[in-house]
């Protein structure tokens, strides 16, 4: 943890009561800027995302939330013409150092997308995909990883009798949790979610939120959401982005009750967005 954990440290207590708290997976952006070709999408972002906590990124459409999230696990690497300046620190080490292997980084920093994107394979094979490409494990270990990942994603009871059936037969909410389970199977330290519930009904959304609440005990969770209630309900810290800049960040309850920036205030009270 760096000293620069801004106001965030003011809150003082690690969220998620009781469970053992790890400090791995603390994230921070330092003077991070990003360009798509000529177009600058992010400007000098300085943001700490604490471990064992949920940080919500909010802001109007096109303000750079997804760009920032995808910078963290270097999903932009394969996009020609992009470049960045500044640093993204994972446990105090820049993820953009040349010796960092992006595929290894992506195993530590899992990502779940807005639209569930299960593979057209069985439920089992979906969850086993990550472990299989990263190591050749004996069968019983793989079984164990699949089961525990599905349990952590609160999906095990619903699918345990149909592991060999196609994942595409699941409901939207189940598929999204399967995507989370698939990510958890890599045992990541950080979980990035880009609007994971925007295509789900309220019940499925609530399930995902409960799940995140459980997961944050062991993980750093960063979630992009357009749903301000969701940010207010489910996150510990909220960061407000606007036109590629980080306007304000702080504990969620303070951000929603006493924002210090006028633009934050207008956004959360719905005056623009």
């Amino acid at each position: 943890m760096t000293a620069a954990t801004v106001e965030v440290t003011a809150r003082g207590q690690p969220s998620g009561s009781g469970a053992p708290v790890t400090n791995r997976g603390a994230l921070a952006a330092r003077q991070f800027s990003f360009w798509y070709g000529e177009k600058q999408a992010l400007f000098d972002i300085d943001l700490d995302m604490r471990s064992s906590a949920i940080t919500a990124l909010i802001g109007p459409s096109g303000c750079g939330k997804s760009t920032f999230l995808r910078s963290i696990n270097r999903m932009h690497d394969l996009l020609p013409g992009t470049r960045h300046e500044g640093q993204i620190l994972l446990d105090d080490a820049d993820v953009y150092r040349p010796e960092v292997d992006a595929t290894a980084l992506r195993r530590r920093v899992g990502m779940v997308f807005q639209r569930w994107n299960c593979f057209p394979k069985s439920i089992y094979d979906n969850v086993a995909y990550g472990p299989r490409i990263n190591a050749s494990l004996p069968r019983h270990e793989l079984d164990w990883i699949v089961e525990s990942s599905l349990r952590r994603a609160a999906l095990w009871d619903e699918v345990k009798d149909r592991l060999r059936q196609t994942a595409l037969g699941l409901s939207g909410g189940q598929q999204q949790r399967l995507c989370i389970a698939r990510t958890l199977a890599n045992d990541p330290e950080v979980l990035l979610l880009d609007e994971p519930a925007s295509a789900l009904d309220p019940i499925a959304t609530q399930k995902i939120e409960e799940l995140l609440y459980e997961l944050k005990r062991e993980l750093t969770v960063v979630i992009v959401t357009h749903n301000l209630q969701q940010a207010a309900r489910a996150s510990d810290y909220t960061a407000f982005f606007y036109m590629g800049r980080l306007i304000e960040v702080g504990p969620t309850d303070r951000m929603f009750t006493a924002p210090q920036e006028e633009r934050t205030n207008s956004y959360i009270t719905g005056r623009f967005g």
Binding site: N73, R106, F113, R115, N117, G130, I133, N186
Partner: peptide
């Protein structure tokens, strides 16, 4: 779909593993 490639990449697959898997 791009989402299929991204899913594999985000799970730590190399380019070749993404194509193959």
């Amino acid at each position: 779909p791009r989402s299929q490639r991204e899913a594999a990449l985000a799970l730590g697959a190399t380019k070749w593993e993404t194509i193959w898997g």
